Amino acid sequence: MTEPRKRTGLASLASAGEDEDFSVIDAIGGPRGVIESMLPGVVFVVLFVITSNLELTVGVSAVLAVLQVIVRLIQRQSAVGAASGLLAVGICLIWAWQSHEARNYYMFGFLTNAFYIVLLSISLIVRVPALGLAVEFIRTLPTEHLRAWLDDWMQDKPLKRAYTIITALWIGVFSLRLLVQVPLYLTDQVGWLGTARLLMGIPFWALMIWISYLIIATPMHHHKALHAAAEEQPGEQEPQRPNA
């Protein structure tokens, strides 16, 4: 029997509140996932700092990215995940190569961070926390009765509050990345910029996944318990949701 594929990233938070142990390492893709995520950035910044040759740096980084995808496909891993990773690295490399500036390898990251800041901020303004939408969509995948699905977790005040908190925290993370890295970009300090990007990448991601789990685990557990009680007693009124 094939072992079920472990969820990574925000999808791992969909299991919060269950009896199974939560693993930050699994949530960020395991040791191999960490290495594969960080390796292109490490190779790019180290090779450029050593050689100052942008064409060589871009070429080696591109070959490495393609090899990673080929290995994934040979091992019959997710083609979507492999392709998305190659696309992201490819955009960064092409941007740096076309502009003839190594620092522009990091421009795509700035844009994605800014996009997430705007998107998450809008979700808080309209009082529908985006991370709540993402986690609940993964957890219960509404195929019909979208309004009932939305009301189900939005009316659970402790759960909605937890989703609001972690959405605000992730806005803080994306903002901090820009606050630290953009000045390094503007002063063309590629070595320090690459180092900051690496340190504020997977390590920050792992920390925020863990903090997010701690915040939502208890309210999600209570939310699931309410549903379990309602399913066991279908003839009775659904238990009242907690308001505090």
Rank of each mutant, 00 (worst) to 15 (best):
V34S: 01
L47I: 09
L86C: 03
A88N: 03
H222A: 11
G41I: 02
V66C: 03
T164S: 14
L87A: 15
L198C: 04
Q189G: 01
V128H: 05
A16G: 08
T187K: 10
L111V: 12
Y163D: 01
V24T: 15
E3G: 00
S78H: 05
T164W: 05
A162P: 02
K157E: 11
T57W: 09
M220Q: 15
I28V: 15
A225C: 00
L199H: 05
L120Q: 07
A79T: 09
R103N: 13
S15F: 08
I91R: 03
E101D: 15
A244D: 14
L159A: 08
G81S: 11
N243W: 06
Q233E: 14
R7Y: 09
S99N: 08
R103F: 01
N243P: 00
S23A: 07
P40H: 06
E232S: 13
M200G: 13
N113M: 06
Q77S: 05
V180T: 09
W170R: 11
R161Y: 06
R72P: 08
S78R: 07
H145G: 09
T2L: 12
A82C: 08
E232L: 15
L54T: 06
M208H: 13
A114G: 15
A148H: 12
V71I: 14
P31E: 07
T2Y: 09
E232V: 02
M154I: 12
M208E: 09
I74P: 00
T164K: 12
I50V: 15
L198F: 03
Q189K: 12
A168W: 11
S212P: 07
E101H: 13
H222T: 08
P40S: 04
E236V: 05
E231A: 15
W205R: 00
